[in-house]
Design a protein around this nucleic acid. Sequence first.
DNA 1: ATTTGTTTACGAAGATATTCGTAGATCATA
DNA 2: TATGATCTACGAATATCTTCGTAAACAAAT
Lengths: 130, 130
Amino acid sequence: MSTAKNYKPTESELEILGILWEKGAGTVREVHEILEKSKDAGYTTTLKLMQIMHEKGLLKRDTSSKTHVYEAAISQESTQQQLLTKMIDTVFNGSATQLVMQALGNHRSSQEELDKIKQYLNEIEQQQKK
Amino acid sequence: MSTAKNYKPTESELEILGILWEKGAGTVREVHEILEKSKDAGYTTTLKLMQIMHEKGLLKRDTSSKTHVYEAAISQESTQQQLLTKMIDTVFNGSATQLVMQALGNHRSSQEELDKIKQYLNEIEQQQKK
DNA sequence: ATTTGTTTACGAAGATATTCGTAGATCATA
DNA sequence: TATGATCTACGAATATCTTCGTAAACAAAT
């Protein structure tokens, strides 16, 4: 069986996870209203999706009141990590560097952000020297 | 209708594209033998997938000899770009920087690669000043 | 108490992706 | 020419994802 940890969320599931990561816990109604802005789907569709995600262990939920409150059960970081790894593997010939350069080249970053990255690079180098 | 350009390949399709990008043109048999190493599927499954990909415009094929020869019809770069954009958007809160740092942090890069990235950063900065 | 609105649960239809068996064509070779 | 190996084409079964209608529970308002 696949635990939630290494389960690969579908496209729709990722959209919902994204919303919950950003806003923290929320009801189906709340999630749905945000979702509607970028997608059109009925309320029960969102409900069903979130129920399935709960079954799969992707969401936790609090059913103590009539209106259930959901929350992401997997962290954004671990999900990012998993998707990145997969992507590097299948599309970037296994090279993280290739991915980084591609991302930097085509998604305009501000000077501030570039500085942040530079600083981070230095930190990594320091660590490696030890 | 969606052209091959903006069509989003499925998981299986990406695996096949990855193989063809790396090795260049190839027959179903060749692709299948590489695919088998990481996945188990029958020969006709791979065949069918590649035929469908051809219909969708993801692969070109040369049918002049009995054994057809396939080739990727979409570039690795544009596909990388498309997937990156989507991923940044849904999983990294729209921040390419966040993705870059996550990738750097968890996928060990050699000093050489780090230097390459630094150099690339400098190039970007130069460009921006103009 | 009845109506109205909101919620969950359930089931099923529809869409898409994946898998593979089987048949027929082609070719090498015994 | 027959045999066997390899290939494509086709169709269909299976699995998975997505969508939504409907019903039942509940609460608030009339």
